[in-house]
Simulated scan of single mutants.
Amino acid sequence: MKILITGGTGFLGRHLVWQLARDGHEVLFTGRNADVARSIVLAAEKPVEFVPLEHGSKHAGVQLQACSTGADVLVHSAALTSPWGSQFAFQNANVASTSEVLAACHANAIPCLINISSPSIYFNFCDQLGIREDIALPSGVNEYARSKQEAERLVMAAAIPLRVILRPRAIFGPWDNALLPRLLRLLRYGRLPLLRGGRALLDMTYVDNVVHAVKLSIKLAPSNGTEVFNISNGEPIAAADLFAKMAEQFGIPLQTVNRPYFVADLFARLLECAAKFRPQWEPPFTRYSLATLAYSQTLDLSRAREVLGYSPIVTLDEGIDRTAQWWKQQGLQA
């Protein structure tokens, strides 16, 4: 198959490029960073092709239509993933990019679109256990969640034979430049504050499991609607236990202290207010990022198991170990 991957220079994107090419597919990938792209091409076991493209730019739509000619599958993983940012930045990166992808699919009659979304669209500042794909969605807790909801609505309305939306929770692994650095920054804090006793149950997803879900999605038969699947490791873990595992694997001394959630939330509100007057500054934590560690959020994987045949291929413990080993091999500071 000929597969085009948007956001191929990102964390998930590079793993998709490498593993789909390894499986024998003809892989093209887009991205903004030519230097990163060169390293991805060099590290690939089989030939892959890079097409420089910045979503939301003047000619992005035309460029995407040109390079997607003859594609059998388009995997849309390009996105701005952050707990903080402007409405324009998220709309441009997450909504405009999806519009460009859909236009390319229609122009070239691409029969299969796989859109990487996020369970952040479920989040509502409360404990949520066993979330199913069909629950009523809140309005969106931040600009990121709102933009991903809007992108999903565009995909659901598209006239493409096979449309798949994957909602992987907290992706981590080698080359992670979003979740892992933030967690390590918390661990290095000294006396790590545990919110609500550190009892919140968290779902995480090792990156190879997301790639596995993409591979399974490609094999689905066309349907009349959009297929939506939760994806995770299926091993919810208490926040305090997760911190302990990571501290052990990364060799970081861990000291914890219980802190009232309402105090931390108030501090986060103050930081967010300050950040509004400093547009280029991201607060060290936000109400959303704190709440994801204070409230339980676990996903029901029944539909992914039954329809996709999905089952995680890498356990949580093995994923953390692999990530820590890679981190140390790169000579990075934990």
Rank of each mutant, 00 (worst) to 15 (best):
residue 119 P to W: 04
residue 319 G to E: 03
residue 252 I to L: 10
residue 280 Q to A: 12
residue 318 E to K: 12
residue 69 T to V: 15
residue 51 V to L: 10
residue 50 F to H: 02
residue 125 F to I: 01
residue 178 A to C: 12
residue 267 F to C: 14
residue 94 N to K: 07
residue 170 A to P: 10
residue 216 L to Y: 04
residue 86 S to I: 06
residue 3 I to T: 07
residue 46 K to R: 15
residue 133 E to A: 01
residue 298 T to L: 04
residue 56 G to E: 03
residue 193 P to W: 06
residue 43 A to N: 09
residue 263 V to T: 12
residue 289 S to M: 05
residue 240 A to R: 14
residue 311 S to N: 11
residue 266 L to F: 15
residue 136 A to Y: 14
residue 243 F to G: 02
residue 255 Q to C: 12
residue 250 F to H: 02
residue 53 L to N: 00
residue 192 L to D: 00
residue 175 W to Q: 11
residue 57 S to P: 12
residue 192 L to V: 13
residue 66 A to L: 14
residue 257 V to Q: 15
residue 266 L to T: 14
residue 68 S to Y: 07
residue 6 T to M: 04
residue 263 V to Q: 12
residue 40 I to C: 03
residue 306 E to P: 06
residue 139 S to T: 11
residue 311 S to Q: 13
residue 184 L to A: 05
residue 155 V to L: 01
residue 263 V to L: 15
residue 160 I to N: 10
residue 83 P to W: 04
residue 110 I to T: 01
residue 228 V to E: 04
residue 71 A to S: 13
residue 215 K to A: 09
residue 191 R to V: 12
residue 60 A to I: 09
residue 91 Q to R: 13
residue 275 A to Y: 02
residue 167 R to Y: 09
residue 300 D to M: 05
residue 65 Q to M: 13
residue 79 A to K: 00
residue 180 L to R: 01
residue 9 T to D: 00
residue 303 R to S: 13
residue 109 A to F: 13
residue 91 Q to F: 14
residue 131 I to C: 11
residue 229 F to A: 00
residue 66 A to S: 15
residue 308 L to Y: 05
residue 189 Y to H: 13
residue 266 L to E: 10
residue 316 L to K: 00
residue 199 R to G: 05
residue 199 R to M: 12
residue 33 N to I: 03
residue 329 Q to W: 13
residue 83 P to F: 07
residue 287 R to V: 05
residue 334 A to M: 11
residue 166 L to P: 00
residue 33 N to R: 09
residue 297 Q to L: 13
residue 317 D to S: 13
residue 26 E to Q: 15
residue 4 L to V: 13
residue 237 I to G: 03
residue 143 E to I: 06
residue 43 A to D: 08
residue 164 V to E: 02
residue 191 R to Q: 14
residue 15 H to C: 02
residue 257 V to A: 15
residue 176 D to L: 07
residue 97 S to E: 02
residue 227 E to V: 09
residue 134 D to S: 10
residue 115 N to M: 09
residue 146 R to W: 07
residue 327 W to P: 10
residue 19 Q to Y: 11
residue 151 A to L: 04
residue 212 H to V: 03
residue 178 A to F: 14
residue 237 I to K: 01
residue 6 T to I: 07
residue 120 S to K: 07
residue 166 L to G: 01
residue 99 S to I: 14
residue 315 T to F: 10
residue 333 Q to E: 14
residue 21 A to D: 02
residue 286 T to D: 00
residue 269 R to N: 13
residue 190 G to F: 06
residue 301 L to D: 00
residue 149 Q to G: 09
residue 34 A to T: 15
residue 132 R to G: 11
residue 171 I to D: 02
residue 142 N to M: 07
residue 283 P to M: 13
residue 107 A to V: 05
residue 230 N to W: 03
residue 251 G to K: 06
residue 334 A to D: 10
residue 137 L to D: 08
residue 19 Q to V: 08
residue 238 A to L: 04
residue 245 K to P: 06
residue 67 C to T: 07
residue 186 L to G: 08
residue 221 A to H: 11
residue 269 R to C: 11
residue 130 G to A: 11
residue 219 K to M: 15
residue 100 E to H: 06
residue 209 N to M: 00
residue 58 K to S: 14
residue 150 E to L: 12
residue 290 L to W: 08
residue 18 W to A: 08
residue 314 V to D: 08
residue 82 S to L: 01
residue 128 Q to H: 09
residue 70 G to I: 07
residue 188 R to D: 07
residue 17 V to C: 05
